[in-house]
């Protein structure tokens, strides 16, 4: 019981939240940049997953990288981090679903996670595990963020 309380008190420390925010924020910024730089290549990768109707592929390729970048910056600078954490968790769930479905369907596709260059970043079960790993620090922010070390907090839920 004491151990559990110690763990929770450690987990809810603002420094841990800051660490989680910086980690996830940087991951999202790094993931967004190649997609923003090469939208056509990213659109092709989105198409390769064969989950969306053709008409929706480019819209997703245009919007998704900027959504990643904005949420990443919101995390790094502490701008409405709890709201951003909800979007990030939702995005990760969608990514994991898409990747899992591609793997189950036996599609040999590129992950499209951190690179859109031809032949780089093949989708594997490890990619899925890595994305799952990103949810955990995002959950910490969603749960424990008190707006400390943040630029714009708004009034947060407690």
């Amino acid at each position: 019981m004491v151990k559990t309380n110690l763990f929770v008190s450690l987990l809810e420390r603002p420094e841990v939240t800051l660490g989680c925010r910086l980690l996830v924020g940087m991951v999202f910024i790094l993931a967004a940049w190649p997609k923003i730089s090469h939208p056509e290549a990213f659109a092709r990768l989105v198409y390769n997953y064969r989950l969306l109707p053709d008409g929706a592929v480019n819209l997703v390729a245009i919007i998704l990288p900027w959504l990643e970048l904005v949420m990443g910056l919101a995390f790094v600078f502490g701008i409405w981090s709890r709201a951003a954490s909800l979007v990030i968790i939702l995005m990760m769930i969608v990514f994991i679903g898409a990747m899992g479905s591609a793997l189950i369907r036996g599609l040999n596709v590129q992950c499209g996670c951190f690179s859109v260059q031809k032949g780089e970043g093949q989708l594997t079960w490890l990619s899925l595990l890595r994305d799952g790993g990103v949810i955990l620090p995002a959950l910490q922010v969603a749960w424990f963020d008190k707006g400390i070390y943040s630029l714009i907090t708004g009034k947060q839920m407690n």
């Binding site: 245009i62 919007i63 990288p65 900027w66 959504l67 970048l69 904005v70 949420m71 919101a74 701008i79 409405w80 709890r82 709201a83 951003a84 909800l86 979007v87 708004g154």
Partner: peptide, 15 residues
């Protein structure tokens, strides 16, 4: 509202 605002910023920047 914050989620919607962040989303709108991303959409505006994207387009």
């Amino acid at each position: 509202a914050q989620v919607a605002a962040l989303g709108m910023v991303a959409i505006l920047l994207a387009f």
